[in-house]
């Protein structure tokens, strides 16, 4: 596809980045609340409910723009080690998010720390794609 050389590419990447800010930004704040560092005036449920629709919006943006960026250069991404790392960690992270992380009764400090670590690895893998082209 010609998208990879077009001005649309950085624009879609930017939307992808705004998606990160919504998704990872809100998940990490809920995790920091679980750890007891932020928004102490509100309960964990209040914080998590407050952010829920932004987290969903961020996820929807990521899962739309991500495949578009991938489709722009399938050959490049499929053999890029950083991309493959990101996809592997992402599958695990999403599974963790929708099972353990979303069940209030299972939430604890360890869940919060694992969540922060996993999302950090997803961002690191994504950002490293440009540095690991073969």
């Amino acid at each position: 596809m010609v998208l990879k050389n077009s001005w649309l590419f950085p624009v879609i990447q930017s939307v992808h980045l705004v998606g990160i800010a919504l998704l990872v930004g809100t998940v990490v704040l809920v995790d920091l609340r679980l750890l007891g560092y932020v928004l102490g005036r509100y309960t964990v449920s209040e914080v998590s409910r407050g952010f829920a629709r932004w987290t969903r919006a961020g996820l929807a943006i990521m899962l739309t723009t991500g495949p578009v960026l991938f489709a722009s250069d399938v050959t490049r991404y499929s053999r890029n080690p950083a991309f493959l790392f990101k996809m592997a960690v992402l599958v695990g992270t999403l599974a963790f998010h929708f099972t353990t992380h979303q069940r209030v009764e299972r939430r604890g400090k360890l869940v919060a720390l694992v969540s922060i670590a996993l999302w950090t690895c997803v961002v690191l893998g994504g950002r490293a794609i440009a540095d690991f082209d073969i």
Partner: peptide, 9 residues
Amino acid sequence: VLGIAWFGG
């Protein structure tokens, strides 16, 4: 990038 996410949240 994490700084952007942090600020955004």
